[in-house]
């Protein structure tokens, strides 16, 4: 879908909210986000929810893209990227629909990208005010992965798992059709961005407990998460070593 160029506002921005069964959180999260980020178009990627997520989001005035089956977080976010690219948005902010991300961070992230200081701005909960709990397995894993990514990229990364991000159009194109993991975009994705020649910057933001519902990282999942992440990072490194990784502009 093409963007029509009748009139060009300063920057056309999109707020992407991947949502899986978030009908109870959306009535609080959406207006809050809307108040914090006026001038943004909002798209809710309804990831095959079994509740009224789509109806609620629509009634709150957001564009809704409904995935007929549940793809998982990465698949949903990537759908948002595709939507952004096909509609010609120049900047997109991804934010969780469960209320974990303080909408005040939207502008902090987006402006860093809009000023051209970076290609991707990642909201870090560790640089910002800490208001958050994590299972210890995941916390340990995250520390290890953050350290690994920091060492390999030469930039300090404190929160590679953060799903609160702002991306410019180049990165959106890079991720929209390829290069994006299906399940958890994470430390491996940051590494990939680095090797592909994009600049990644962390911006301190506040994160909170979920308003309601079950987080996707609960129960035995932290263990699976750590293993999977380790494999994903190894693979990015291996690809970098064995053949040319997809370079910037190749997309």
């Amino acid at each position: 879908m093409t963007a029509s160029f009748f009139f060009m506002p300063s920057l056309h921005r999109l707020l992407i909210l991947p949502a899986y069964n978030e009908a109870t959180n959306l009535p609080r999260v959406l207006p809050e986000a809307r108040a914090a980020a006026p001038g943004y178009d909002v798209v809710v990627i309804n990831d095959g929810s079994r509740d009224a997520t789509a109806e609620v989001a629509r009634s709150l005035g957001a564009a809704v893209v409904t995935l007929p089956v549940n793809l998982g977080y990465g698949g949903a976010v990537q759908t948002g990227f595709r939507y952004a690219v096909e509609h010609g948005y120049e900047l997109a902010v991804v934010m969780d629909a469960d209320g974990q991300h303080d909408p005040a961070g939207i502008h902090l992230l987006a402006d860093t990208v809009a000023r051209g200081e970076t290609d991707v701005a990642i909201g870090s909960r560790f640089r910002g005010r800490m208001a958050y709990h994590q299972p210890w397995v995941k916390r340990m894993g995250m520390k290890l992965f953050a350290w690994t990514v920091s060492r390999l990229t030469g930039r300090e990364v404190t929160d590679p798992t953060s799903g609160f991000q702002a991306l410019n159009q180049d990165v959106l194109r890079f991720f929209a059709y390829d290069n994006y993991p299906v399940d958890y975009p994470d430390a491996d994705t940051l590494l990939l961005l680095h090797y592909a020649g994009f600049r990644v910057t962390e911006v301190p933001v506040t994160m909170r407990e979920r308003l309601s519902g079950v987080s996707m990282h609960s129960g035995w999942k932290p263990f699976y998460y750590v293993l999977k992440m380790w494999l994903a990072i190894s693979m990015v490194l291996l690809r970098e070593k064995t053949h040319l990784s997809p370079r910037r502009g190749a997309s």
Partner: peptide, 17 residues
């Protein structure tokens, strides 16, 4: 009808309502 905006999707309604 195409409007003065870059988009004629209802998602822009979000900013009008």
């Amino acid at each position: 009808k195409p409007t003065e905006r870059t988009h004629d999707e209802p998602d822009t309604d979000f900013n009008n309502t």
